[in-house]
Design a protein around this nucleic acid. Sequence first.
DNA 1: CGACACATGTAACACGTTACATGATTTG
DNA 2: CAAATCATGTAACGTGTTACATGTGTCG
Lengths: 212, 212
Amino acid sequence: MSIRHAMLALLQERPMHGYQLRQEFESRTGGTWPLNIGQAYTTLQRLERDGLVEPVHSADGEPERFRLTAAGRDQAGSWWSTPVERGAPARDELAIKLALAVTLPGVDVEEVARAQRTETMRALQDYARLKRRIPADVDGTDLAWSLVLDSLVFQAEAEMRWLDHVEGRVVARRGAVNGTATAATSRADAAPPPAPDVDATPTAARRGKARR
Amino acid sequence: MSIRHAMLALLQERPMHGYQLRQEFESRTGGTWPLNIGQAYTTLQRLERDGLVEPVHSADGEPERFRLTAAGRDQAGSWWSTPVERGAPARDELAIKLALAVTLPGVDVEEVARAQRTETMRALQDYARLKRRIPADVDGTDLAWSLVLDSLVFQAEAEMRWLDHVEGRVVARRGAVNGTATAATSRADAAPPPAPDVDATPTAARRGKARR
DNA sequence: CGACACATGTAACACGTTACATGATTTG
DNA sequence: CAAATCATGTAACGTGTTACATGTGTCG
């Protein structure tokens, strides 16, 4: 439900053809979410079929643009005024994976968490690198891309904290199971992760943890 | 790529039939990600086609179960050892939406952010309510579900912080545009997060804020 | 009996991905 | 001229959703 809406949103600005839509979309998101061109056309077809856009006939051999219909403007408007759903059916692959890991025998949860931490740290470093390329005096597009990057950073940092949290819970539980009903406590931790530590990143996820 | 893997993971424990797979999956994730039964069967078909599972013939009229083949065990194993990708093509609907909002005329970014904040707060309250239902002495399944919930909370909190951040940037920019060419000024908040508290339980979002 | 849980499927559709085919125009 | 960019599409496939059809067994 997203590219469809993104295309409606872009067409609010001015009529465009498929190729333009892709370019505008990608430039505003800095290349996160590369929009494959095939989909742009099939989505345009569906939008036309649903009466949300209509072709604008341009002179000579110019590529045909599409403009929003009244219904299209409505849809776009209601997209803006409706928040992205954050509710019950929350599908998060990582969370599911770790949840399964803790319930299945023969799966080393801490190892899984450790590997994920490494991957997430790597991503954070990528984000930091990309961030350095954004000019100081942002124009509209730079601001957009910068905010998307920040979003990724915020999420990745939350993920790091959650992974800490998971390890804490798992260690605590293992202690409780081994030591007869000895609630919690247990030793600091098994293996303090590699901790590559991001340099000039916002709040470079501070590794270290002294939980418990 | 997720339900497929989840099903392989569950079959590591023991052979199951479609209906069981759904039940096990849903109980371990507390109902987040309700798995529609139709998909369970089509996915099982594909897994069988790909030689990752095979039917176990049971006596009488019992429902037929599936067990992992050697190839299936391999796939499951490599899923565990490969982290969830956190890379370039990061598709986050909310981030894209706000990014488009800041670049398009006639869209009230702050209103969009405000509406989203309300929705996310609502979700946080739901999570808190669900959390209260989890017994204190967790068994494996409770722990799994509890961790999934925590993940949702961590993410929602990160989202709240990001929304604050977005509003900060937008307000700063509006000031810079209005106030004649006053560049620089609040470049300060270009560096993100307040970096929250990681205690054993994610903080039930402290709202309050005196934005504006 | 009727409702409900168990159990297995099919059909139609939306969305997204990769890959391919086809041409026009621009530019080194 | 060759290569890149502009521009438009189609095909096949995977994945996920909703909805429907069909039966068995159990329990109040």
